[in-house]
Simulated scan of single mutants.
Amino acid sequence: MTIKEIKEALKARFICGEELQHRQVHCACGSDMMSDVLAFMKDRAVLLTGLCNPQVIRTAEMMDVVCIVFVRGKIPDETMIEMAKEREIALLSTGHRMFSACGILYEKGLRGGGPYHE
């Protein structure tokens, strides 16, 4: 799935990174807890979150996240947008809630990886 396909499926809008819309995304993670993201993330992922602080961008960079979708209409501030631009991470915003957004992407074939085991 591409970032453009994610945007269309979620009826989202680009905040930045529209030039990255043809990048492939291999899996997804939905979380507001960056510690869970660090435990989960795989290669070339999309992160769905309602958390709007610079730690989200820093975590995304470490985990090879190519796109962040802010749910519930959240919009990051200019500092976060600049951080994402510097790191070539696309930012989107959707009005969907986290559960719905994850479900839509799952329905379209995007998966989150295997089950979590402690």
Rank of each mutant, 00 (worst) to 15 (best):
A28R: 09
M34Y: 15
V25E: 05
T49C: 10
V46P: 02
Q21F: 08
L48C: 01
V37P: 01
L47P: 00
L47G: 07
D43Y: 14
G30M: 03
V37H: 05
T49R: 08
F40P: 08
C27H: 07
N53C: 09
L47K: 00
N53Y: 03
Q21K: 15
H22D: 15
A28T: 09
L20T: 00
Q24Y: 11
L47S: 11
C29W: 01
H22T: 02
L47T: 05
G50P: 00
L38S: 14
M41Q: 12
R23S: 14
S31E: 08
C29F: 05
N53E: 00
S35D: 12
M33K: 05
M41F: 05
A45K: 03
L38Q: 15
A28Y: 06
L51N: 08
Q24N: 08
G50N: 07
S31L: 12
A39I: 14
A39R: 11
V46L: 05
M34H: 13
S35R: 10
S31W: 13
D43W: 10
V46D: 02
T49H: 05
G30L: 01
F40N: 04
G30V: 10
M33I: 15
D43S: 12
R23D: 10
D36P: 01
F40Y: 10
H22M: 01
L47R: 00
S35P: 09
D43G: 04
V25R: 07
V37I: 12
A39E: 07
C27W: 13
D36K: 02
C52G: 00
H22E: 11
G50W: 15
F40R: 10
M33V: 10
L47A: 11
R44F: 02
Q21P: 04
C52I: 15
V46Y: 03
R23L: 04
M41S: 15
L48W: 06
V46H: 01
C52L: 10
T49V: 14
C29Q: 06
M41L: 14
D43M: 12
S31M: 09
R23M: 05
R23K: 12
L20F: 08
L48G: 02
D43T: 06
D36C: 06
K42F: 09
H26N: 14
L48R: 02
D43I: 02
D36Q: 03
S31G: 10
A39C: 08
C29H: 06
L51K: 03
G50M: 12
S35N: 11
C52N: 01
D32M: 03
L20Y: 11
Q24W: 11
C52Q: 01
L51S: 11
V37D: 02
K42P: 04
A45D: 03
V25D: 03
M41D: 07
H22I: 04
N53T: 02
R44K: 15
C27Q: 10
Q21C: 09
C52F: 02
M34K: 10
A28H: 07
A28V: 01
M41T: 15
C29L: 06
L20P: 00
A39N: 07
V46G: 01
D43H: 13
V37N: 06
F40C: 09
L38W: 14
M41Y: 02
A28I: 05
G30R: 00
M33L: 15
C27G: 12
L51Q: 10
H26G: 00
Q21M: 09
D36T: 04
G30S: 11
K42Y: 06
M33A: 05
Q21V: 04
A39Q: 09
M33S: 02
G30T: 08
M41V: 15
H26T: 09
